[in-house]
Nucleic acid binder design. Structure first.
Length: 378
DNA sequence: AATACAGCCAACCGCGGGGAG
DNA sequence: TCTCCCCGCGGTTGGCTGTAT
């Protein structure tokens, strides 16, 4: 069955909306309410597709929309939510009042995605993986458009015409490294939110400077000795190019997948939620048998493939140095801890998963999912 | 000053879910 | 149950413009 076009394409205007069109749309919706997008353009006298009207309204004209910079807090929320939900922009946007899915999607694509994917893990010898921002020499390129708007009032003139004045804060886009010549450094964005994201173990990145990997390694070793929090690699991460145990004495650099920072973990973030779900909790063949007692919360959970019990290991409450010096284990997750957190009443139910007890599995899975989602820890 | 490069972001596009008839 | 239609979503595009060369 062919799909009817959303509207007659003939004679319809495309591209940027004019102030007049905005005004017409706003007045119409104020008088008639949202909805009936298909008939709206005709009734309102707009030469636009209904979808275009809807998009314009939702993403730009609707009351209550925040314009301007994504705050550091919003930034963190986006990172966390994206780690757990993936590209479910509308869902992520629903947790950020005044932000639209389109805005968040654009922000992710423009800022966070590139930054996170540009993180490389530099590791070797006795160090855990280090995440540093890759120095990328830029040739040309724009700063944030919002910086531009500061001067040009880009498109906001239209908004002003209808009585809304957005908040536009100037962004100091980037700076050169400080004058400390002894520490090699690179140029990187100084957006506060971005700096917060790339903070790793409190040592990898000094304020305004991404340290040389070797310097970072040294600092990180100190951190390890003093009881820093680290995670353990698994074979599964290996497959996903997320965390590959380095060979002894070998320094390697590779792109990370989902990014997790200690800061995020301590904030209760669950950046690996999607990973957990897709690779472990939802994989009946890989389901865990928790074995040891402890008290750590599964704010970030890693599977210990080296363990015969296929234990889960959590990322906080952990201070052990890896047996071979290259990776570092955390306290095993306990069943009781998981019970309390996620309302799983009977762990034996979970044991049935691998034997095809799908009905029970689905119920419990739902419990966990909703608990994870609704819980304060999220 | 001119040009090329880089990237932000508004808007478009196609698909799928779900409701109505 | 099927078909049609509306709506919403995520992916993608292209215009615009700052910056480096």
């Amino acid at each position: 069955m062919g799909r009817a076009p959303c509207c007659e394409k003939e004679g319809l205007k495309k591209g940027r909306w004019s102030a007049e069109e905005d005004e017409i749309l706003i007045k119409y919706i104020q008088a008639n309410g949202e909805g009936s997008w298909r008939s709206l353009p005709k009734n309102a006298g707009l030469l636009r597709c209904g979808k275009s009207c809807r998009l314009r309204w939702i993403n730009y004209l609707k009351d209550g929309l925040k314009r301007g910079n994504i705050s550091a807090e919003e930034d963190q929320i986006i990172v966390k939510l994206h780690a757990s939900m993936g590209n479910m922009w509308s869902l992520i946007a629903s947790h950020l009042p005044g932000r639209t899915d389109n805005e968040i999607k654009n922000y992710w694509n423009a800022h966070l995605s590139r930054k996170i994917h540009s993180f490389t893990r530099v590791s070797g010898g006795t160090s855990l993986p280090i995440i540093v921002d890759v120095p990328v020499k830029r040739r040309g390129g724009r700063t944030s458009r919002r910086c531009m708007k500061k001067n040009k009032n880009y498109n906001y003139v239209q908004k002003n015409n209808v009585g809304r004045i957005p908040t536009v804060k100037p962004i100091k886009d980037s700076v050169l490294d400080p004058t400390d010549q002894e520490i090699p450094s690179v140029r990187y964005s100084t957006l506060a939110s971005e700096k917060e994201i790339i903070t790793v173990s409190g040592t990898a990145i000094d304020d305004g400077v991404v340290l040389d990997p070797d310097v970072v390694l040294d600092k990180e070793r100190e951190s390890v000795v003093s009881g820093g929090c680290h995670h353990q690699a698994t074979g599964k991460y290996d497959q996903n190019q997320v965390a590959v145990p380095p060979s002894s004495g070998q320094k390697e650099t590779e792109t990370l997948g989902p990014f997790v920072s200690e800061e995020s973990i301590n904030d209760g973030g669950l950046l690996w939620f999607d990973y957990i779900l897709s690779n472990t909790l939802l994989d009946s063949n890989e389901f865990l048998t928790a074995s040891e007692s402890g008290s750590c919360k599964p704010e970030a959970v890693f599977e210990d493939k080296n363990s015969s019990n296929s234990e889960f290991l959590c990322a906080n409450n952990c201070s052990n140095i890896g047996y071979n010096g290259e990776w570092y284990s955390c306290s095993p997750l306990t069943t009781s801890g998981f019970d309390e957190l996620y309302g799983v009443d009977n762990w034996e139910l979970w044991d049935g998963v691998g034997q095809g007890n799908n009905e029970i599995w689905n119920d419990q899975k739902e419990n966990v999912l909703s608990s994870l989602w609704e819980g304060d820890n999220f």
